[in-house]
Lab assay of single mutants.
Amino acid sequence: MVVWDEDGFQGRRHEFTAECPSVLELGFETVRSLKVLSGAWVGFEHAGFQGQQYILERGEYPSWDAWGGNTAYPAERLTSFRP
C-alpha cells in the first residue's frame, strides 16, 4: 500500500508492506490519499489501531470520501494500518 499526506496523491509518500501502528512515527501527521496495490488492508482513524476502521480493497483512494464517504461517522484521515 502506498500513502500520501495530501489529497490527490500529493505531498509526502510512503510505501507499506507490513502493519503500521502510527504514521506519526514516520513523520506524517495524517494520511489523506492512498493506493492499495494488492490484497486488502484495514485503515484506522487513530494510532494504535483505534477509532473508526475501514476495509481498503485493491484500488485508488484519492481523498477521505473515497474510503469513508458512506458512513455515519466518516474519518477524514487515517493514522494506522494493518494488512
Rank of each mutant, 00 (worst) to 15 (best):
M1F: 14
V2G: 04
V2Q: 05
V3P: 01
V3R: 03
V3T: 05
V3D: 01
W4E: 02
W4I: 04
D5M: 06
D5I: 03
D5S: 14
E6G: 05
E6Y: 02
E6T: 04
D7P: 15
D7H: 13
D7S: 13
D7E: 15
G8S: 11
G8M: 07
G8Y: 07
G8Q: 13
G8F: 06
G8W: 05
G8K: 09
F9S: 01
F9D: 00
F9Q: 01
F9M: 03
F9Y: 12
F9E: 02
Q10E: 06
Q10F: 03
G11V: 02
G11H: 00
R12V: 05
R12K: 15
R13E: 04
R13M: 14
H14N: 07
H14W: 12
H14Q: 10
E15Y: 09
E15V: 09
F16Y: 04
F16K: 01
F16V: 13
T17A: 08
T17Y: 10
T17F: 09
A18C: 05
A18N: 14
A18I: 05
A18T: 11
A18W: 11
E19F: 00
C20A: 04
C20M: 15
P21Y: 15
P21R: 09
S22G: 08
S22C: 08
E25W: 06
E25T: 14
L26Q: 10
F28T: 06
F28Q: 07
T30P: 04
T30C: 06
T30H: 15
V31P: 03
V31G: 03
R32N: 03
S33L: 02
S33Q: 01
L34Y: 02
L34E: 00
L34P: 00
K35E: 03
K35L: 00
K35A: 05
K35P: 01
V36T: 02
L37N: 06
L37R: 05
S38N: 13
G39N: 05
G39Q: 03
G39K: 04
G39S: 05
A40K: 07
W41C: 03
W41T: 04
W41P: 00
V42Q: 08
G43P: 04
G43K: 00
F44T: 03
F44E: 03
E45T: 13
E45M: 04
E45D: 03
E45Q: 14
H46K: 07
A47G: 07
G48W: 06
G48M: 10
G48I: 05
G48P: 02
G48R: 10
Q50T: 06
Q50E: 15
G51S: 02
G51W: 04
G51K: 11
Q52E: 09
Q52T: 10
Q52W: 03
Q52M: 13
Q52S: 14
Q52P: 06
Q52R: 13
Q53C: 15
Q53D: 12
Y54S: 08
Y54T: 09
I55C: 05
I55L: 11
I55E: 09
L56N: 06
L56W: 03
L56V: 02
L56R: 00
L56P: 00
E57K: 11
E57H: 04
E57N: 10
R58E: 15
R58P: 13
R58F: 08
G59I: 03
G59R: 03
G59H: 00
G59W: 03
G59C: 01
E60S: 12
E60C: 06
E60Y: 02
E60P: 04
Y61T: 02
P62N: 05
P62G: 09
S63M: 06
W64E: 07
W64R: 14
D65S: 15
A66K: 08
A66L: 09
A66F: 08
A66Y: 12
W67D: 04
G68N: 12
G69H: 11
N70D: 14
T71N: 13
T71V: 11
T71R: 10
A72M: 06
A72W: 07
A72S: 12
Y73A: 13
Y73R: 13
Y73P: 11
P74Y: 09
P74M: 10
P74E: 13
P74S: 12
P74A: 13
A75Q: 10
A75R: 08
A75E: 07
A75C: 13
A75T: 11
E76Y: 11
R77V: 12
R77Y: 07
R77P: 13
R77A: 15
R77G: 10
L78F: 13
L78M: 08
L78A: 01
T79E: 08
S80F: 01
